[in-house]
Design a protein around this nucleic acid. Structure first.
Lengths: 241, 241
DNA sequence: CCTCTTCTCCGTACGGCGTACTGCATGCCG
DNA sequence: CGGCATGCAGTACGCCGTACGGAGAAGAGG
């Protein structure tokens, strides 16, 4: 599975040269996904984007699923790792910041419902480093795993709701007018103040407004990490033996 | 958009009777998704499951997307609401419990990348009630919205990682052997103790084991709600006056 | 009752998808 | 130079969602 991620095959010597590289194919696929959206991504369109025949892609990649895993691993590869000299909390916050930036750069990652992580080297490197940072707390390892998962899924959730609503319209620009028109029509027609009083109050107070800002995830992460800090037992000898 | 969810059309009086009901169609679709998995779901298979022609479904439902939204709203309709006499924390925990149960019952919801909520009545009722429960804390409404989002995405994240790994194999039972074989082969071939020391330690300590148990989300939710409790300013007059 | 109108069901068909197969051109190795 | 491993791509197969139109059912109006 995804040998390509770990073992890029040695260049063949016998036949004709490859016209492209694997990197070019992955890049083209990401560009198509960014331009047309993840569910308009098809082998034919990637090939067309590269100016080759559809079936030629299969000399670079075993199939669409594998190409997709390569795309995901590529996206994770852009995540920088925190400075290990920082305190654990700053390192974890840095990881969250990078994850957020990744979803911002590659919104198709959210639609991609990575129901199983691709186990690529970039993914594993980033996760290992997050685990390492959380482990600096000294908490039991089972808690470390859970906390790291919380951080990731918290940022994912924030990114998902950010992409979900306003931003999808403004980013892709066009053709979302119809979507908004129908949605506005929905609110006008079916929304009932009596049935959804709390949502109405939140709406009127502007509580749903901050869609694509860092505040969306910083609040939750702060809450989470405050809780983690309280889990850490005070060190028995704060200074000196 | 999804008029069907809010305005089930009045039964027609002119033509022949419908052979089925909308509910039957949605039920059949959910059964197909549960049996074959969400990406094997197709109009033709749902129709076959019902013993009708493929195109007959389109007299009940405008298209596959709408059918899918009906499926999601149906799943949310199974969520019970907490007793309003309980303290806010117990109500929120009840909501999380119900969300977890929903993902357990309908794993296809996780694969379903609900990038936009369907805005069905059941979805909105459940969300409204969660907002209401969180609002009992008396916190600012913008925080209420964020906290409710955190609770949902936390349970979603836990459910996703639970479904992702072991459980997908054991639940669907068959044909996942190949998946596991290849994954085991991966660990044997590429996993490096030196490269991933923290993950190795967590693995050896059993920190990755608790996949499909309530502990997966209870820990994170506890952390979260502890943090929320600390946000609540102590009531100025705990008793008296 | 007959006819008109409306509706359900569904066979056919179209364009798109992932990809198996195959023929062909390419260019290294013996 | 001959042989052969290899990259490229045309064709085709079996899926998919669904537009279209025809056949038959059944209430509405005379």
């Amino acid at each position: 599975m995804i040998e390509l991620l770990w073992n890029p095959p040695p260049p063949k010597t016998r036949g004709p040269k490859q016209r492209l590289t694997l990197d070019q194919v992955v890049t083209a696929a990401i560009e198509v996904a960014a331009t047309l959206g993840i569910d308009e991504l098809s082998m034919r369109k990637v090939a067309q984007h590269l100016g080759v025949g559809a079936m030629s892609l299969y000399t670079y990649v075993p199939g669409k699923d594998e190409l997709f895993e390569l795309m995901i691993d590529r996206a994770w590869g852009d995540r920088r790792l925190p400075d290990r000299a920082l305190p654990w909390r700053a390192q974890v916050e840095f990881h969250a910041q990078e994850a957020w930036r990744m979803y911002e750069t590659h919104p198709w990652l959210i639609r991609s419902n990575l129901w199983r992580m691709p186990l690529g080297p970039n993914v594993l490197d980033a996760q290992e480093d997050l685990y390492r940072a959380v482990a600096l707390t000294g908490l039991p390892l089972s808690d470390v795993a859970r906390i790291a998962g919380l951080v990731e899924s918290q940022v994912f959730g924030a990114a998902r709701s950010a992409v979900t609503d306003t931003s999808v319209a403004s980013h892709t620009g066009v053709s979302q007018d119809a979507y908004w028109e129908s949605r506005a029509g929905f609110w006008r027609t079916y929304y009932s103040f009596e049935r959804f009083p709390t949502m109405t109050r939140i709406w009127e107070s502007g509580g749903f407004d901050e869609e694509y800002s860092d505040a969306a995830w910083e609040f939750g992460l702060g809450l989470l990490l405050d809780g983690v800090e309280r889990l850490i037992p005070p060190s028995p000898h704060p200074a000196g033996t």
